[in-house]
Design a protein around this nucleic acid. Structure first.
Lengths: 387, 387
DNA sequence: GGCACTTTGTCCATAGACTGGACGAAGTCG
DNA sequence: CGACTTCGTCCAGTCTATGGACAAAGTGCC
């Protein structure tokens, strides 16, 4: 059994520094005195820590706040652009990347077409993307976060399997870290989404959260006790291939009746095509739902129900109250979401299900990029997201 | 959002003290110098900490070891009986308890029949059990660990719901802690079992583990990243009430078709009664299975299959490779276990399912008692099992 | 046996970091 | 305008880890 590390004064300091930064980040702009009250640290210590942070440029004084009967407080704020991170989204058709600030706001973006490249050629494309992004960037770079489909071991930064790029056990994190000399974190796309939801939740952050991405595939990212949970083989959250109907349709994974074959984007589109007699994409289905077409509503209900049943299983197993849905299929709108909630609520222990909040994420430019960047932003804030 | 706590010097000290104790506990008898090398602490600090521990009686000097070319080291060892903890198992028919030493060895046991008591009378019985156990005990008591059926919030020690004892939102931990003036930890029986499997696994300890207890109810205890995971509402692992067949039998929770109504002990016995036309308990079913009776094998297969499907969901969601089964229903033996493995293996992503090890726990004297005690032993060693 | 060398455990001065009280600065309120 | 409050800083004090020095107690070689 590996022994944990000893405790030193430096660690105490680092811990408290991060505590102060995080407090300012989440609840800012606030004064030193307020930070002291919130954290339990003395005003002396907070002042000392803040002096360091001001010196590093991570925090700024932005003037006086309203007095509450005494001297007016000097308000402090994290300088969102004091540090930058890179977030990459290695998608199936495009490699996209952005420079992102501490608040997850995108400052510059680059996108390159994959054009069927794989293996080493795909790796070279990653380098090109990074070079373009970093060229002439101003603020110090905290690190690089990478989101990719497939099975990823975030602790080592290894891509265990990414079918379309023909990568297998590729130590991508290590390779990139060496080339650019900054920390690198790698996660799959559902996990990245969960990290984004968690990190950028602001004061509304909760320690346990499930983000479910419903697109071509169905996958979940689990944040448990404030950190990404990946399980023993990096496969935690791979709920898309749990068999929900043994007599169901053949799945690309080789089994039949996986959740993906009922709730996934392709399944939904195939159902719609069968109903209309012609190829029908999600947008068309949504339009039909809005137009009140019964077949479209029924399809949304079916897909949502299947997902809801899977979520009920998650609730029973983990008792997590915040569940965020995202991905293309969420476009199916209210009837779909209602079906998800109905099934999730009625198939788990009532005492647990009643407190669950299932919602669709605010659509943002690029969740994967933001999530990938979150890995590094969180590190600066002392939220060790990967353990 | 609850802010984490600040770091202080005292915490540094506590951390290092525990680090030293754990090193001695796991690798004992060794010298101060060796501890310093293993932990990275200076010899000065280790000496200082050890002085405290000697004063507390937790550690003993047991003479000189062999020299390796210099002054012979003074060997140190944790005194296994320097502290005791109490583990309680509040079962449906009996309340059992034991005094346990730091190594998990049972020193004294007491068992009292419940005889239908509930509410305050049941609470009084807990007190009587504890009084008998503690009467005349020598070594200082570290604390009391309690395992009980039902929904338990381990952080606060509150029993949220225990149907058969008619307890609801009972702050059992607080009550007992106040009466005996020691720390108290409360966990439900599945969680206690998981903790026992984890803590006393010896060199075979893995950070992620699921223990599933199949008796009258079906419940799981989750050890994730080396700590008990309870979810947002203390209900993590309550898989017995996930609906697996919406058209199934009525469950005591009010819904229909919960896992418990198919895989639980009562369901199995009811099936058997229907097949034989007379009341048939688990032992009788087991005998019938051993005798090759088709109806009995079919019942075992049905019950095992349902549990296996639920486990497949867990594997997909969490990718945990060590799953331990325990409780009365495991007596159904090989056909049941085979069904569990078959369904679990064929209904989760093959890449994940292939590495999973599903086994029945070695029957031990009392898993719940040992698990409950583990909570406190681990605390002394600085393995925070509950977070 | 004597000497050089190693290892152990302790002592002591020092440094890093938090604490708590005191104090001036800068507000509010009557 | 004076009493009171709040903010931020300063300073002395305390806790705890650190690193070097040193005596004690071994081993090994000549």
């Amino acid at each position: 059994m590996a022994l944990p590390t000893k405790a030193t004064h430096q660690q105490t300091r680092v811990h408290n520094e991060r505590l102060v930064v995080r407090t300012l980040y989440d609840l800012g702009p606030i004064s030193r005195a307020e930070v002291a009250r919130l954290t339990g640290l003395t005003r002396t210590t907070v002042s000392d820590v803040v002096a360091t942070l001001l010196g590093d440029g991570v925090v700024r004084e932005i003037g006086r706040g309203p007095s509450s009967g005494g001297k007016a407080p000097i308000l402090l704020q994290v300088d969102d652009d004091a540090r930058l991170v890179v977030g990459l989204d290695l998608g199936e058709e495009h490699f996209a990347g952005s420079l992102v600030n501490l608040r997850g706001e995108i400052r510059r973006s680059v996108e390159l077409a994959v054009d069927g490249r794989d293996g080493d050629a795909a790796l070279a494309l990653v380098f090109e993307l990074l070079d373009q992004l970093l060229d002439g960037s101003a603020a110090p770079l905290l690190g690089i976060g990478i989101g990719t489909p497939g099975l990823v071991d975030s602790r080592t930064g290894t891509i265990r399997r990414a079918v379309n790029l023909d990568w297998r056990d590729l130590p991508l994190g290590e390779i990139v870290a060496e080339r650019y000399d900054v920390p690198v974190n790698v996660a799959n796309d559902s996990q990245a989404a969960a990290l984004a939801e968690y990190t950028y939740a602001g004061g509304d952050r909760v320690p346990n959260l499930i983000a479910i991405r419903v697109g071509r595939g169905v996958g979940a990212g689990l944040i448990l006790r404030g950190a990404l949970f990946q399980g023993d083989g990096s496969g935690a959250g791979e709920i898309g291939h749990v068999v929900v109907d043994a007599d169901g349709a053949l799945c690309r994974c080789g089994r039949t009746g996986c959740l993906e074959t009922i709730a996934g984007m392709r399944a939904v589109e195939a159902q719609a095509a069968a109903a209309t007699g012609q190829p029908t994409d999600l947008a068309a289905i949504r339009a039909a739902i809005d137009g009140g077409e019964p077949w479209a509503v029924a399809i949304a209900d079916d897909a949502g129900s299947a997902l809801g049943r899977a979520i009920a299983g998650l609730i029973g197993a983990l008792d997590i109250q915040r569940i965020v849905l995202l991905g293309p299929v969420t476009d199916l709108g209210a009837p779909w979401l209602a079906a998800v909630r109905r099934e999730a609520g009625s198939r788990a222990l009532a005492l647990l299900a009643d407190d669950v909040d299932i919602a669709v994420a605010r659509p943002t430019t690029n969740v994967v990029i933001r999530g990938a960047s979150a890995l590094l932003v969180a590190r600066e804030l002392g939220l060790s997201l990967v353990r």
